[in-house]
């Protein structure tokens, strides 16, 4: 089952597992298309340059080969690169986009061929005007070729392995010394708030200094109001360290 919310395509597998694919915007797709036009033009020009020594042998056949090379590169460039690179042309690769099946299934070569063969319809009347209009009004941002092929273009997110070392260091946790209070804290904090706390810690380096102070001040204040710890356990603890200690209690039971 696929649903759409904002610019996210959500796919639910028959087993009930949900994963989300962030859709690419029409503007990014257009930029990728421009890059691909430049690259394919460059490839065709390089091949014809390579064949230039044949020109004196027969100008006629050299002109024919040149025309056919430009035509073939123009027609096949996106198809071949998307098949070889599993949904990516060089332009898409540079801009971190990828064509995927709209239901999360494995892409067939026929899907990639169809979405590229239907470009003449998308290009009507000039430079992808029809395809662009359709993709703006279509909820998955699909152009006509994508609708026919059952594909969507998504943004490829960096998926580095999660690391918790920066959040839960080997520092002494004064709150953990009070087992019964720590247990009460675990009982009182909802999973949603716990996840927000973890997110705040994971992203703390990306926050403006003032916002960082305010956010951790608010979180620490809330946790303190829920389960007060003895003063010797919290004195000289900055709000951020307090929240980090709370998170460690929550996520390292």
């Amino acid at each position: 089952m696929t649903t759409y919310e904002g610019s996210i395509l959500t796919i639910q597998t028959p087993e009930g597992v949900t994963f989300r694919l962030p859709l690419a915007s029409p503007v990014t797709r257009m930029l990728a298309c421009c890059l691909d036009l430049l690259i394919s033009g460059g490839i065709a020009a390089m091949i014809t340059q390579f064949l230039a020594p044949l020109a004196p042998i027969s100008k006629d056949y050299y002109a024919a080969i040149t025309a056919l090379i430009y035509f073939a590169v123009n027609l096949l460039y996106s198809m071949v690169t998307e098949i070889v690179w599993r949904g990516q042309t060089p332009g898409k690769r540079i801009l971190k986009l990828r064509v995927v099946d709209s239901q999360g299934l494995r892409l067939d070569a026929s899907q990639l061929i169809i979405r590229n063969l239907l470009r003449p319809a998308d290009m009507l009347p000039v430079f992808y005007l029809l395809g662009g209009m359709v993709s703006i009004y279509q909820r998955f941002g699909q152009r006509l070729g994508d609708i026919a092929a059952g594909t969507v273009v998504i943004r490829v997110l960096d998926h580095k392995q999660p690391s918790l070392e920066n959040v839960f260091g080997a520092k002494f946790n004064s709150l953990a010394e009070h087992g019964h209070l720590a247990a009460r804290l675990r009982q009182k904090v909802t999973p949603h708030l716990a996840s927000l706390t973890l997110e705040a810690l994971l992203r703390r380096d990306t926050l403006e200094p003032q916002a960082r102070l305010e956010l951790f001040g608010e979180l620490a204040g809330y946790f303190k109001s829920q389960v007060p710890f003895p003063s010797e356990a919290v004195e000289q603890l900055a709000d951020e360290q307090y929240v980090r200690n709370v998170a460690e209690i929550l996520f390292r039971s």
Binding site: P162, P191, H192, S195, E199
Partner: peptide, 9 residues
Amino acid sequence: EPFASDSDL
């Protein structure tokens, strides 16, 4: 599932 939507994990 209950976690915030954009965590690395």
